[in-house]
Computed example of a mutant assay.
Amino acid sequence: MKIPVKPIVDIAKKNGPHLIKQYGPSLLGAIPKGSLSKKLPHHRRERFNTHVKETLQNLDSYNREQLISLELEVEEFLLQIEDEKANKRVPLNPRINKWKDN
């Protein structure tokens, strides 16, 4: 069964601002403080930090298969960044070389 989306969108556009003015403060009071402002780091940045902290420190303990998988992962990230630049989609933080350890 299909749900008609257009009437729902029209009702939200028409009544949304009024409902937010009326019920907004009570709705925002139900949300815990700090949960809206908490920003998650980009997945590439997290992985970069993991590579710097763990992988490079224990490089001699990895076997050949693990090293090849890590190399493929890094190459995949580089291809994703090149693809985003080619499609005019800018990564969240393109200054990878300026990332610092947390």
Rank of each mutant, 00 (worst) to 15 (best):
P41A: 14
E54G: 06
L79T: 05
P94Y: 00
V5D: 02
V74R: 13
H18P: 00
N49F: 08
N63E: 12
S26D: 08
K21P: 00
L67A: 15
D83G: 06
K2I: 10
L56C: 07
G34P: 02
F77A: 13
S35D: 04
E46P: 01
R47D: 10
V52R: 13
S69F: 04
N63S: 09
P25E: 08
Q66N: 09
R47Q: 14
E65H: 09
S26M: 08
L19Q: 03
I96C: 06
K13D: 12
P41R: 15
R47F: 14
N87S: 12
H18M: 09
P41G: 12
S37Q: 11
F77V: 14
G34H: 06
K2T: 15
I81G: 02
L92W: 06
H18N: 07
V52A: 08
S69Q: 14
I68K: 12
L19V: 03
A12H: 03
D83K: 07
K88Y: 00
Q66A: 15
L79I: 04
Y23P: 01
E71D: 13
R89S: 07
N58Q: 09
I11Q: 10
A86K: 09
L78E: 08
K6A: 13
L28I: 05
E71T: 12
K85P: 00
Q80C: 04
G34T: 05
H42I: 01
H43P: 14
R47Y: 13
S26N: 03
T50C: 10
R44C: 02
K13T: 04
D101N: 06
V52L: 07
N93G: 09
K85I: 03
G24M: 05
P94M: 01
A86Q: 04
E54H: 13
E73L: 12
P91D: 08
G29E: 13
L79Y: 09
K21T: 05
D83M: 04
S61L: 07
N49Y: 06
P41L: 12
D101M: 14
V74Q: 14
R45I: 09
L36G: 06
A30Q: 06
N93E: 10
H18F: 05
L92H: 10
L59Q: 02
K98W: 03
N58Y: 10
L27A: 09
L67V: 14
D101Y: 03
K14V: 01
R45F: 05
S69M: 07
V90G: 00
E84V: 00
N97G: 02
V90R: 01
K21G: 04
K2N: 15
K39N: 11
F48G: 05
P7F: 07
L72H: 12
P94G: 00
K98Q: 06
I8V: 12
K98V: 01
K39A: 13
H43E: 11
L72A: 15
N87M: 06
F77H: 12
E71C: 10
V74H: 11
H51F: 15
V5A: 04
A12E: 01
N49I: 15
E54V: 10
S69W: 03
K13H: 09
P91V: 02
P7C: 08
K85D: 00
D83E: 11
N58H: 15
D101H: 03
K85Q: 05
G24C: 05
E46V: 15
K98R: 06
V90W: 00
N102S: 11
K21V: 01
G24T: 02
A30P: 00
H42L: 03
K98E: 11
L92F: 07
I31T: 01
